[in-house]
Design a protein around this nucleic acid. Structure first.
Length: 619
RNA sequence: GGGGGCGUAGCUCAAUUGGUUUAGAGCGCUGCCCUGUCACGGCAGAGGUUGCGGGUUCGAGCCCCGUCGCUCCCGCCA
């Protein structure tokens, strides 16, 4: 709410009469000697100068306390009329977020007034001189964890420069810097060169939708912002760089999520003359360094590895959260002869499976919760969600009457069924069952508030090189078309391509995909074969899109491989937030809008004319 | 593109089944008082187009339709 003019005048007069000089810009004799987080008992008696923002004002009438905040912490200032009348009078006019500089003497706080909640709480600064460097309007939300953290996110984004003053946000920025620095030092120590790759790149319609940039000097032609520096980093290997890394900005014009922004940062790297084992060791070393620097924790290496198919069979996802059990158990063989038609027909269909998981202690699920789980199951393609509640020594379920004793025995032993358990079933094509039970597992874990602590790093390996895409009715690369096949599977490329495993690896932490990469194809004939014979990209299209790569590979491309880690996601995990926006200084909203600068925005007609662009906003 | 949630004072929220006050509270803000506070305290006060537009009704913050914004999810996206 805006203030009425008379009030504004009044408050200005108040500030003026209190001695705030608006006439001199940035001219001050006072230079800070310390930050607001470092004063301790050892400095008692010392004359220091602090500068910062007024965090809190406690005016007791005779004596005025100001809590001064800067990046490093808070220090209490004392303005005492008996010590210095002029600065005490000026201190009356201080308000939240005024920027001030103060000179004074560090002194021990009197008996009983030590504040153990403040690192600097043993001492205070008795102010001699006060200079108001800049007044502040009343901020739209309070710059602390009780105000800012609870303010609506749109408000925080609009006033991002205030939100970032909050200690918890400042902490995230600092941690981001620290992790970036740690990564750079680590790569430097391991012989990597940081090389910048172009932001103005070529459109590569495979994969994510791209941001396009029109070229003024080439009418009708466009750059695209890179989804990742993939092709450049491979070219750097051909260029003999051998070890490249970059904190690379990437862009994707897709719909946003809590963990997805239109522009984001990857720790991107590529190495020549290596195999998968080298990559695992390198990244394990990196993450160990990062965890040590960011959290002071030692994480055990090497990380466990799990084949893709095992991840899917046991957890229903290719990025399993292994911090808790509730694994999927297969009963396809046990229900081969079942009288229960739903299970029987699933088993009888090619590719059909019956799987179940035991939601331990969830027999108390309400009708509503069961219905909600069923709805979830249906939304992922299941026809329904069969369940058994184990309550009062009884199996309560509409389907249990169809089960034979042998089937019941199999369930009991494999699922370790006990009183109070809830058994949930999936019976369908195995991909559907994986997805449904994989999602249900996570939802139930949330409902039951299962304890999920620790850092479960995991390499997921042996992904299929290509997957059949039902929508497009053709084979697509699981990772990307530059991924090399596992050597022993190469002969299958012609006969049974879906059986071919790629030399692709994902690094997963606590159910979050941190990153992924692969050993690449470096032989031009193999790459051409993948484009044209396996992925069925027409030769002319492959040529125009990737021709330069195929050509480059003909000039002695070294064997190479790489990986990219989601830097923002990594930071979110380290900062303990599920919201990627909390670790990005200036993020965009779910509609890809920057609320602080109000972009994107319209441009001048002349700009469009220069770019040979006509708008058609009707369609 | 689809589905869910939210939108009331500067901020966070309340407001019984659609029906008595002038739409309330806490924080913040303004003024006065207060010399050891640190969530300072006390007294007084200002502050509202209930996101916006339409409709139903004797009567709408509440119901309906549309629209805008924020958010979560699906699709999409490594």
């Amino acid at each position: 709410m805006e203030r009425r003019p008379s009030e504004i005048k009044k408050s200005r007069d108040r500030r003026r009469s209190a001695g705030c000089d608006y006439g001199i810009e940035g001219k001050t004799e006072m230079k800070r000697t310390q930050n607001c987080g470092e004063l301790r008992a050892a400095q008692i008696g010392k004359k220091v100068t602090l500068a910062g923002w007024v965090h809190a004002r406690r005016d007791l009438g005779g004596i005025v306390f100001i809590e001064l905040r800067d990046r490093e912490g808070n220090t209490q200032l004392v303005f005492d009329p008996q010590h210095n009348k002029a600065s005490w009078e000026l201190a009356q006019s201080l308000r939240s977020e005024f920027v001030i500089a103060v000179e004074g003497q560090v002194r021990q706080r009197p008996e009983g007034t030590i504040n153990p909640k403040l690192p600097t709480g043993e001492v205070e600064l008795l102010a001699d001189t006060l200079e108001i460097l800049n007044p502040s309007e009343t901020p739209p939300f309070q710059i602390d964890e009780s105000g800012g953290a609870q303010a609506g996110e749109d408000l925080r984004l609009q006033y991002r420069y205030l939100d970032l003053r909050r200690p918890s946000m400042a902490k995230n920025l600092k941690l981001r810097h620290k992790v970036a620095k740690t990564a750079r030092d680590y790569f430097d120590a391991n012989g990597f060169l940081e090389v910048e790759t172009p932001i103005l790149f070529k459109s590569t319609p495979e994969g994510a939708r791209e941001y396009l940039v029109p070229s003024r000097v080439n009418p009708g032609k466009f750059f695209a912002l890179p989804q990742s520096p993939q092709q450049f980093k491979q070219m750097l290997m051909v260029a003999g760089v051998e070890r490249y890394f970059q904190l690379a900005k990437c862009f994707r014009d897709e719909d946003l999520r809590a963990d997805r922004q239109p522009e984001f940062t990857q720790i991107d790297l590529e190495m020549s003359f290596i195999d998968r084992e080298d990559m695992y060791a390198l990244i394990e070393g990196l993450l160990a360094q990062v965890w040590l620097a960011a959290r002071g924790e030692k994480i055990p290496t090497p990380f466990p590895r799990m084949p893709y198919i095992e991840a899917m069979e046991r957890f229903g996802v290719d990025k399993p959260d292994t911090r808790f059990g509730m694994e999927l158990v297969d009963f396809t063989a046990d229900f081969k002869e079942s009288k229960f038609k739903v299970f029987r027909s699933a088993v009888d269909t090619a590719g059909g499976v019956v799987k179940a998981l035991n939601a331990k202690g969830f027999a108390c699920a309400t009708q509503g919760q069961i219905e909600q789980l069923t709805e979830t199951a249906k939304s992922f393609g299941a026809k329904g969600l069969a369940f058994i509640k184990v309550e009062g020594g009884e199996w309560k379920s509409p389907i249990v009457k169809f089960f034979s004793d042998a089937e019941k025995a199999a369930l009991t032993s494999k699922l370790k069924i006990e009183e109070g358990d809830l058994i949930l079933f999936g019976a369908d094509q195995r991909e559907i069952v994986w997805e449904v039970l994989g999602r249900i597992r996570l939802i139930v874990a949330d409902i039951l508030k299962l304890e999920r602590t620790g850092w479960n790093f995991l390499w997921v390996v042996d992904f299929p090189l290509i997957t059949f895409d039902r929508e497009a009715n053709r084979y697509l690369s699981t990772h990307h078309p530059f991924t090399a096949a596992v050597a022993e599977d190469v002969p299958l490329l012609d006969t049974d391509p879906t059986k071919v495993r790629g030399q692709h690896y994902d690094i997963v932490l606590n159910g979050v995909e941190l990153g992924g990469g692969s050993i690449r194809i470096h032989q031009p004939d193999v790459q051409k074969k993948v484009f044209e014979d396996v992925l069925k990209i027409p030769a002319d299209v492959a040529q125009s899109r990737f021709g330069y790569m195929l050509q480059a590979f003909r000039y002695g491309a070294p064997p190479h491989g790489g990986i990219a880690l989601g830097f923002d996601r990594l930071l979110a995990i380290l900062c303990g937030t599920s919201n990627i926006r909390d670790v990005i200084a200036f993020p965009k909203t779910a509609k890809a809008v920057d609320l602080m600068t109000n972009s994107p925005a319209e441009v001048e007609p002349k700009q469009l004319r220069d770019l040979h662009i006509k708008l058609d906003l009707e369609s």
